[in-house]
């Protein structure tokens, strides 16, 4: 049985798809058979981030409507053989996602994959609810600002009331992934700190992804940023994947680096 991970946030633009792509890639590169599903029907993005947009023939909705088989719709990643992508349909809307249809697809994928990463759309409506309903593990992507934190809190409430596990009285494993973190701006009070966000959301911290130009560059190139192990974001995503797999490693890139501190002192 595959483990189903939902990457969700409530708020849009916080880095759900970027995180889904990097975490899926990180799991697959460690040998786990992994599939990333784009639940953002109508606003397909994952294929761009993964750099496979030209290879989309059939999509998630085609499979739900049994217009195509899973094997026809799944796209194999060119870099990592254990990674597949199930793209969203661009021409449909979220109403095309039925609970039975989604369950069918997930059941089929469960037989061959170790991890199913569900990239949730923004919002708390049907698309987001379908993405989180079957999840075993939730990764809540949050930016260090108040509106993102509040939306994450809201989505945690929905995970606790409207997911399959909640209905069965079971608990979903919840993880906080703090993205676009900038220690300098935290220091001058322009951004919430890791501790502030942890205090409000009260769930374990999976990782802190520092704000980095590498993320935008990677998106535009269609290469998940985790492949860029020179960048701080790439390293931070790799750490997050290791923690997800049970390793206990310290958080990096949370504090202002000493070099920067002295640079600031001498006004450089």
């Amino acid at each position: 049985m595959a483990k189903i991970i939902v990457v969700t946030s409530g708020k849009g633009g916080v880095g759900k798809t970027t995180s889904s792509a990097s975490i899926g890639t990180g799991l697959a590169s460690r040998g786990f058979k992994t599939v990333i599903i784009d639940f953002d029907v109508g606003l397909r993005n994952l294929d761009l981030i993964m750099g496979c947009e030209r290879r989309v023939v059939y999509d998630f909705v085609n499979v739900i409507n049994t217009e195509a088989s899973l094997n026809q719709a799944l796209i194999r990643d060119k870099r990592i053989p254990t990674l597949s992508i199930l793209p969203a349909s661009q021409t449909r809307d979220k109403e095309a996602l039925t609970r039975e249809g989604v369950q069918n697809v997930l059941d089929q994928l469960s037989k061959t994959f170790d991890y199913i990463v569900c990239d949730s759309p923004a919002g708390i409506e049907r698309g987001a609810q379908m993405a989180l309903y079957f999840a075993d593990i939730a990764i809540v992507v949050t930016n260090p600002e108040v509106s993102s934190v509040r939306d994450s809190d809201r989505i945690l409430g929905i995970l606790q009331s409207k997911s399959r596990r909640a209905e069965k009285g079971e608990i979903i494993e919840e993880h906080l992934l703090l993205t676009r973190y900038n220690p300098q701006r935290v220091a001058i009070g322009e951004m919430l700190s890791v501790e502030d966000v942890k205090d409000i959301l009260a769930i374990p911290l999976l990782g802190v992804i520092p704000e980095s130009e590498a993320v935008l560059k990677a998106s535009n190139q269609g290469t998940p940023v985790i492949h860029d192990q020179e960048s701080t974001s790439g390293m931070a995503y790799d750490d997050a994947v290791r923690r997800l797999l049970g390793e206990d490693i310290p958080h990096r890139f949370v504090d202002i680096t000493r070099k920067n501190f002295f640079k600031r002192l001498i006004g450089a």
Partner: peptide
């Protein structure tokens, strides 16, 4: 026993 979330 669990946190009461926004919207609950």
């Amino acid at each position: 026993t669990r946190p009461v979330r926004s919207g609950q």
